[in-house]
């Protein structure tokens, strides 16, 4: 494909846009991974949403 004299600008525009979107996707993925890890870690220490009802009397004063 021939993009004429300004081919480099067109490539740069598409390339930079792709990079920004990939960075956005990567940020969301990494964020998800760290959050899942911390949820798992919390669950391993016995803090998860499931036992919320059993714990609320002790911790309700925090809110």
């Amino acid at each position: 494909m021939d993009f004429g004299p300004y081919a480099s600008f067109i490539y740069a525009a598409y390339g930079i846009s792709a990079l920004i979107i990939i960075a956005l996707i990567a940020w969301i993925r990494i964020d998800r991974k760290t959050l899942e890890d911390s949820l798992k870690q919390l669950a391993a220490h016995g803090h998860s949403r499931k036992i919320k009802s059993a714990r609320t009397p002790a911790s309700s004063e925090t809110k």
Partner: peptide
């Protein structure tokens, strides 16, 4: 998820 983690951390700490 971030808010859940935060709430659980706070509860764990308390």
């Amino acid at each position: 998820m971030r808010r859940r983690v935060r709430a659980l951390r706070l509860r764990a700490a308390s």
